[in-house]
Design a protein around this nucleic acid. Structure first.
Lengths: 113, 113
DNA sequence: AGCCAGTATTGACGTATGTCGAACCAGGAC
DNA sequence: GTCCTGGTTCGACATACGTCAATACTGGCT
């Protein structure tokens, strides 16, 4: 993505855009959720069953479920039930938006080179 | 950055890396801090005086100072005092690291196309 | 020195967040 | 139908977070 995606922004992000973006960043502001997203994304098939995610942590299963819910509400992942199991999948549009926002910041700083 | 920057990660980020990265994401998980970073970055000169940042918000001066401190502790900005005023500057290495992490997530998903 | 403007720190407050156990829901197997 | 397994939701708890007013610090000016 080029810095053409950046808005004019004479004084930075609008309050509305900042509020929207900050919810996505907040969702990744927890080590457990960051690892969850990483584990989900690192599957080439793009889908991971909750039963594979839970045992990777020293946390109760409800806690993992809660973190997955937050990731879903932030638009970072989607979930689908198939039979007994629930599968989570990455939403690449959202991570792409976050990466684009960060690139804007760096482009504007003009130290990208 | 290409997906060569991604680690082998058979099962996602390590707990240590996740903890380190999550503090950066958490720092941007607040709309005020996101706007602050955006305002700092959008200065071509790369420096903004605190006295220019504070009046842009309906918040007390100590609150803005607190948010700037968090941004600094997360490695996202640096500060320098010159005379009476304190100037904040972007640390592009940190935002670049965050963008790289997000790109890894998308690359691994193989839906980047 | 003494004062003043710009920042940072402190202490307190209410709210949000992460975690758990317990209870609840969904589907498959019997 | 009754179980059992995999997940979510509920309620409670301790901690962390965002905010403020008050205070302290810093450096220039007179």
């Amino acid at each position: 993505m080029s810095n053409q995606d950046c808005e004019p922004l004479p004084e930075g992000l609008t309050a509305e855009k900042a509020a929207e973006l900050s919810t996505m960043f907040k969702a990744l502001g927890d080590p457990v959720r960051l690892r969850l997203l990483s584990m989900i994304a690192s599957r080439p098939g793009g889908e991971v069953c909750v039963c594979e995610l839970t045992p990777a942590f020293d946390l109760s299963q409800p806690t993992i479920s809660h973190h997955l819910k937050l990731l879903r509400q932030a638009g970072l992942v989607g979930s689908e039930r198939r039979g007994t199991w629930v599968y989570y999948r990455l939403r690449p549009e959202t991570t792409a938006r976050m990466a684009a926002a960060l690139s804007c910041v760096n482009d504007r700083h003009a130290v990208t080179a």
